[in-house]
């Protein structure tokens, strides 16, 4: 297990991070070039003010009509996304590894709190799964890949949860956890998980068009 662990947390982690940062930069640059090529006029009404106004409303729970219309979804999606981002970044055992590898460290969550946040992510993933399977309007826009990316996102948290509690074969679960994290990082730029990169742009575009062209609110 020594060599497998060192492989997934060494070379494979490097590849995952390079794909994540390189791929993200590539996707954003490519998107901007495409807009420049095909719909250059969009730049004439892009506005910082309307962009930020729209982003600001949509990142606050219940600050938009659509958030208020779907209160359960709103609570779940905010809890899910906050925990999804914060848990791995501020997890003590992750920061310990950053410190050992690069002598950099930052504030960390208490383990008991990270444990609860992990459960929130897992329950959120289950909620999204059930939603995709049962709600007709969601089912209609769901394809096989949506289930795959949901699994890609859930996997590091499920394995992390098992590893933290040392259930089943710990070394194997631990290696699978690192592998699952590598896969998720690398998948972000190249799957629908790229909404992590594009959502601010989409929001900025919508906000600008509604604000500057239609003179209307988009929340």
């Amino acid at each position: 297990m020594h060599s497998f662990y060192n492989f997934v947390s060494g070379p494979l982690a490097w590849i995952a991070f390079i794909l994540f940062f390189g791929g993200s930069t590539y996707r954003i640059v490519r998107m901007l070039m495409l807009v420049n090529e095909k719909e250059k006029f969009i730049f004439t009404y892009m506005s910082w003010r309307y962009s930020l106004r729209s982003i600001f409303h949509w990142i606050i729970p219940f600050a938009t009509v659509n958030w208020r219309r779907q209160p359960v979804l709103t609570v779940v999606t905010f809890a899910f996304h906050i925990c999804l981002m914060a848990t791995p970044i501020f997890l003590l055992s992750h920061v310990v590894l950053w410190d050992e590898a690069f002598s950099i460290s930052w504030w960390t969550l208490p383990d008991a709190m990270a444990d609860v946040m992990t459960v929130i992510v897992i329950l959120g993933a289950v909620y999204f799964l059930v939603r995709r399977l049962t709600l007709p309007e969601v089912k209609f826009v769901t394809s096989g890949s949506d289930f795959v990316i949901l699994a890609i996102v859930a996997a590091p948290f499920v394995t992390g949860f098992f590893a933290y509690h040392q259930w089943l074969s710990y070394p194997l679960i631990m290696c699978l956890h690192v592998l699952a994290g590598d896969i998720m990082l690398a998948a972000i730029p190249f799957t629908r998980l790229s909404h992590m990169l594009f959502s601010p742009f989409t929001r900025a575009y919508m906000g600008s068009e509604f604000g500057k062209v239609r003179h209307a609110r988009d929340w």
Partner: peptide, 17 residues
Amino acid sequence: HQEQKKGPIMCGECHIK
């Protein structure tokens, strides 16, 4: 342990619950 390629190297191998 890393140098010797022997012994625990993952968190939970030493910090056993």
